[in-house]
């Protein structure tokens, strides 16, 4: 193999490289298609891994299904349960799961004692609501803080922010959530400590809204450090570039310089790492849901893991991974939209 040193393409390649919007859009579509094509085998492998792990698990599925009743169940009842759970090879169980999955039949959840499809359908929207609102809040806060800190690099606020965010980045999201709960709910009593609504109250927008504040805040605060720190760094770099300086020297008003020259450029590196960060966002929201008893997929996942409910565990793992992949795809599409230098075919 010949290794070639010249990094720059020849002049001809540079100029003919100009893409029309049409070919760029179709390249973005190709990107989406490629990601989907890649997600399918990944889903297969993940589900396979969950079922295989379930098979090697040393604990007894029937015992965990029966729970406390295990001691009192007779041998016949026990056999009935084992028959219900299916004492088959794990590959066969997995195959049944895969075949049923496209039709919505994801199996029977032993922990919730309901159809997995129904459990997932009821829980996924709450997870998405929490994640989207939390990330949106984190993004807005991040942009504001990054801009303030970058424009006044020697200000007290910038120093406090840099140090505070750095420290916050070391706090796991379940600690953020617990601390928020301890202070705002248990300490000051401003907001409810958990759940979707007050006990027994109907699911209304007002109820959910009040219960949503703390979880969203927890997700936002645990994601804020990386967003704000990366944006701050990128904004600082962008403010120093010749292009920003040149725009100012051409007489472009400062607000426009920030909006058109600084922020898009600063968003590019942040978006580029967002794709890699989204799995952690998902993980963080799992923890937040668990702390606040938010009836989302993450909480279901933890419950399923504790109860060794592998049908629900497989479905939740696959779906949450899918959410992370979809988020990564959206981040990359935004990158393609903002930065003309990114080649969708190379992402």
């Amino acid at each position: 193999m010949t290794t070639l040193q010249d990094a720059a393409p020849p002049p001809g390649a540079r100029t003919t490289g100009s893409r029309t919007t049409g070919s760029r859009a179709s390249a973005a579509l190709r990107l989406a298609g490629r990601r989907l094509a890649w997600a399918l085998p990944l889903v297969v492998v993940i589900s396979l891994a969950v079922f295989a792990l379930a098979a090697v698990s040393p604990t007894d599925a029937a015992a965990s299904f029966l729970g406390a009743r295990d001691e009192f169940a007779g041998a016949a009842a026990r056999q009935g349960v084992e028959g219900l759970l299916g004492d088959r090879h794990w590959l066969a169980s997995w195959w049944e799961w895969v075949v049923g999955a496209p039709g919505g039949d994801l199996g029977w959840s032993t922990s919730v004692r309901a159809d997995v499809g129904a459990v997932v359908a009821a829980r996924l929207p709450w997870t998405l609501l929490l994640m989207v609102l939390g990330l949106a809040l984190a993004a807005v806060l991040g942009v504001v803080l990054a801009l303030v800190a970058a424009l006044r690099p020697h200000g007290v606020l910038a120093r406090v922010l840099a140090g505070g965010l750095w420290a916050l980045s070391a706090v796991p999201s379940f600690l953020v959530a617990t601390t928020l709960m301890a202070v705002l709910s248990l300490g000051l009593g401003w907001l409810p400590a958990g759940g979707l609504t007050d006990p027994g109250a109907p699911v209304t927008a007002a109820q959910v809204g009040r219960h949503l504040v703390l979880p969203v805040l927890a997700v936002a605060l645990s994601q804020l450090p990386w967003i704000a720190l990366h944006l701050h760094r990128a904004t600082t770099d962008q403010l120093r570039t010749t292009s920003t300086e040149a725009a100012r020297l051409r007489g472009v008003p400062e607000r426009r310089v920030l909006a058109r020259h600084v922020l898009p450029g600063a968003a590019v590196p942040t978006l580029a790492i967002a794709g890699a960060r989204l799995p952690e966002v998902v993980a963080g929201s799992v923890l937040v849901e668990q702390v606040f008893g938010w009836p989302g997929l993450g909480q279901g996942l933890v419950q399923a893991a504790l109860a060794q409910d592998f049908a629900l565990l497989a479905a939740a793992t696959v779906l949450l991974t899918g959410v992370a992949l979809l988020g990564g795809l959206l981040a990359d599409l935004a990158l393609v939209r903002i930065d003309p230098r990114t080649d969708p075919d190379a992402l």
């Binding site: 890649w38 990944l42 969950v50 792990l53 952690e280 504790l306 991974t321 992370a324 990564g328």
Partner: peptide, 21 residues
């Protein structure tokens, strides 16, 4: 490597820990 990176690490951990206790 790409596949492992795409799955949230905590989720993998939860699944493994669920099975192996």
């Amino acid at each position: 490597v790409d596949g492992v990176n795409a799955v949230p690490h905590l989720l993998l951990g939860i699944v493994v820990a669920a099975a192996l206790r």
